[in-house]
Write a protein that binds this DNA or RNA. Structure first.
Ligand SMILES: [Mn+2]
Ligand SMILES: [Mn+2]
Ligand SMILES: [Zn+2]
Ligand SMILES: [Zn+2]
Lengths: 149, 149
DNA sequence: TTAAAGAGTTAGAATGAGTCTAAACTGCAA
DNA sequence: TTGCAGTTTAGACTCATTCTAACTCTTTAA
């Protein structure tokens, strides 16, 4: 599937890059389009292989560079499970990750503000947290269409 | 500091190893003693260097092997933060990890059952989770003696 | 119109945590 | 004794990620 961004997403990307002092480039557009097109938490290699379909000369190093830039600009989150390859997620809403033990698929789990609050409340005085990472490991029985994309 | 286990801990270790079909060895005793002596979530290299003080011939490969065995027997948990070296934790109570951005230190955060429950409740139907990992990233102001060991 | 500067891209080398391999060692049992 | 199964060991290997240095592209300055 050839990737390209609609005007809206391209503007969003350009604005976020600009705020971080970075430029919009064709490579960054393609890589970002790949992330938006299939939100299955791809690894760098998966992003690379998908992006190459629309931009054959693209290099793996550039994919690493682009993804790092996006993370720096707050456009994308890194997702780590144990020591596996880092995966990338363009969902900016607060959410946890569920990793299916059998398929390896990663699903987004919405995080209601009340749960965030109860989590923050377990920190003893003096502990100030900016980032909370929550990851589940288990099995999915049904194929919930909302969470299986 | 030379590491050794008291009779009670040695029995616990032997029993857990036995249930997993594994034997108690001098190397496993030393490595386990290192984990119990200083519960600061050491990396493999840190465990290796501490353990070598009481057992100079010990090899790094054996430390990897011992720790893997302990994890398999449920005696120890692996703790990962982003792509840093894996750390090891002998605290078997349900707890989260707080990583100090500045010092790199990792602290245990108690996880009340009610919070565990609220976390499990955010899973959509069909999602069955065995393991939940929670990690905070931030700063510690005070040196809470309960959490700074 | 050219030249210099700066940002981004690229291929390939380097890094390093973790894993694998094969030989040596240990404790126990036939 | 001897054999065997599990364990330990040094060192080779893997592979995701980072680094390096050359190259390209765009913008700015002369
Ligand atoms: Mn928008
Ligand atoms: Mn006990
Ligand atoms: Zn996600
Ligand atoms: Zn811990």
């Amino acid at each position: 599937m050839i990737q390209s961004l609609n005007e809206h997403n391209r503007e969003d990307l350009q604005e976020a890059l600009g705020k971080g002092g970075q430029k919009l480039t064709p490579q960054r557009e393609v890589v970002f389009a790949v992330l938006l097109a299939q939100r299955d938490h791809p690894t760098v290699d998966e992003v690379f292989n998908r992006a190459r379909e629309s931009m054959p000369g693209l290099s793996l190093a550039t994919v690493y560079n682009c993804l790092e830039t996006f993370v720096g600009c707050g456009l994308v989150r890194q997702v780590n499970h144990e020591r596996e390859s880092t995966r990338y997620c363009p969902n900016l809403a607060p959410h946890a990750h569920f990793r299916d033990k059998e398929t390896g698929q990663v699903h987004d789990i919405e995080l209601p503000p009340e749960v965030m609050k109860s989590l923050r409340s377990i920190l003893p005085p003096g502990f100030d947290s900016e980032v909370i990472e929550i990851s589940f490991l288990g099995r999915t029985k049904a194929n919930d269409p909302l969470h299986s994309n």
